[in-house]
Structure formats: C-alpha cells, structure tokens
Design a binder for these strands. Structure first.
Lengths: 149, 149
DNA sequence: ACTATGTAGTTCGATATCGAACCATTTACA
DNA sequence: TGTAAATGGTTCGATATCGAACTACATAGT
C-alpha cells in the first residue's frame, strides 16, 4: 500500500515529539523527578485527592507495576502519602502532602516559560484544533489494545 | 496564563499516543525487538547502509549510549554487522545482513494490517495534513534542546 | 458458612534509557 | 613534530518500564 509509509512517518513524528518534550520537561523538574511523577501530582490536584493506585494506573494507561514504582518515588520524596482504604482492605488511597502541592505549583511555574516559547510559535488555535483529534486517536488505539488481547 | 493547560493537554495526548502505538508495534515484532531496533533497520534500508553509530544516534535524536545498546541487540540477533570504518580508526560502520533485510520486510508485512485498521478510521488526507505540522514541532523542539548530543 | 474465583497491590527479574567517566584516535595549532 | 583539545564509541551505574508470579482481601454462587 502506497500510503502506509505516511502512517509510519506519522507515528515516527509522534514518537520523537514525545521523546523531545519529555526530555525538555524532565530537564526542568528538580531532583530526578520524571514526567509520570509530575503527571500524578497534577492529576491528584486537577481531579481529586484520594485516588487508589489502580485508578491512577488506568487513568495513565500504564501497568499497575509502573504505578507502584512511580508512587514509591513520590512517597520517598514526601510528596504524597499512601493510607489504607477504609472501604476495601486490599486497597490504598493516595493523598497529596502540603509539600506535594507546593512542589507541583513550583514545577508548573518553572515549566510555563518553556511552554510560552512553544506557544509563541504554535498558536492556541492550532493546538486547540489538534487536541480533540489526537484524543480521538488515543481513544482508538486504547480500544484496539483491549480488543487485541 | 489561561491557555497553558491546553499545551499540557497537547503534550499529554502526544505522550499517550506514543506509548500506545509503541506498545502496539512491539506486540507485533518478534523476539523482543523494540521500536528503536526496527527503526534502525528501516533507516538503513530507506536511507543507506554503512552509516556510523553516531550518525544513527543523531538521526534518531537519542544519546549515543542508547544507540550502542540498540546496535548491540541487532548485532546479537545477526540483523546487522559492524565493521571498522576505513576512513576513521575511531569509528565503525553499520551494515545490514541478508537476514536483517528479510526481517525488516517481514516486520513491515506484519505491521501493515494494524496500520490498515488505523487508516480506515483516520484518512490519509487527514494524516498527510498533520505530518508536516508535527515535523515543524519536532524541529522546533529539537532546536530548543539545550545540550547537543 | 464455604469454597472458588476475582481484584488490589507488591516483589522479582529482564531489559531499556541515558549521564558520567573512560579509552583510542584524530585534528588543531604552536 | 609534539602536545592539547575534540571526537567516536564503549563501559558502568542509576533508574524506569513492565510481565509473571505472588499475597492478601473481597465477592459470587452454592
């Protein structure tokens, strides 16, 4: 098929952008924090405190072992606390600490200048138009994954 | 800035698509081969045989240590050969083996059905319009990157 | 109530990623 | 020509990712 290389190119660009943006993010996060660390903090603030590890794993579409690892790192740095889940003895709930909230706010403040640079070149209108289409693709790929296993 | 969350969302979608597409690719590659392995084989065929490891590292924008690791894997599987570079005693050149060429062709044949599924939902016109814009972003991020190499 | 099955989370082991330090060779230049 | 700096590549060590197997608790079906 003639058009197949186009799709290879597409996923290739996506992959490189992900890689470069991730590196750029992490270069601006202190103390060896990674994008998953930051994303979890962010999620806990934007959505809600007190999620379970498994809920978080599903929200980010990573295996639960990866989430265990991420949460261990956050806990070791005092940015979250894990407490038993009173509603289910197998489960835990993840709570932000004051330090975690402060840290996330600081991190955002640090990341904004880099974002502004990007925003100066790629307008909010453009990006705003793109996001829903990317979200569609993400949903498609996510569904294809379930179907395939 | 009000519009900053939009950019966070954008990079978030990119990251998840990269993660899901990578997992889908690797599920269809045999023998624990990864996307970087496949990409290098593909690059050697599409561009040219006999690149040096450092050229490959730059082409994929990864650190040279990562490329060493990828090439070691390919060599161990007999898909490439590394020979000294007659023009420079420090350097090597990477050559495809017959097995490497065959492997790459087989891998593409295996990947095409999955691509067709995606193509049925997201038209070549749409994707074709997207790719140059993503390439622009990739170039921008690459230029913005701090340390070269 | 009892057993079978399912679910939440961790541990373990294999592999990938990547920075720092290192060695060998090449290039710049006094 | 001789020495300093730069370059190509690997080794080493730290950390991330993730599947398989495991433990502990929960729920369904009898």
């Amino acid at each position: 098929m003639d058009r197949i290389p186009l799709y290879f190119a597409f996923f290739n660009e996506i992959g490189i952008i992900a890689q470069l943006s991730r590196a750029a993010f992490e270069a601006r996060l202190p103390d060896g924090l990674t994008v998953p660390h930051f994303s979890v903090l962010n999620h806990l603030i934007r959505v809600a405190d007190g999620r379970t590890p498994l809920e978080l794993a599903r929200a980010f579409q990573v295996p639960k072992t990866s989430m265990t690892n991420t949460l261990t790192g956050l806990e070791a740095r005092g940015l979250v606390e894990m407490r038993p889940n009173p509603a289910d003895g197998r489960s835990k709930r993840v709570w932000l600490t004051a330090k975690g909230r402060r840290f996330r706010d600081d991190a955002i403040a640090t990341l904004i200048p880099a974002m502004e640079g990007f925003a100066a070149r790629f307008s909010p209108d453009d990006i705003g138009a793109l996001v829903p289409r990317l979200a569609e693709m993400r949903a498609f790929l996510d569904a294809a994954r379930d179907g395939a296993e």
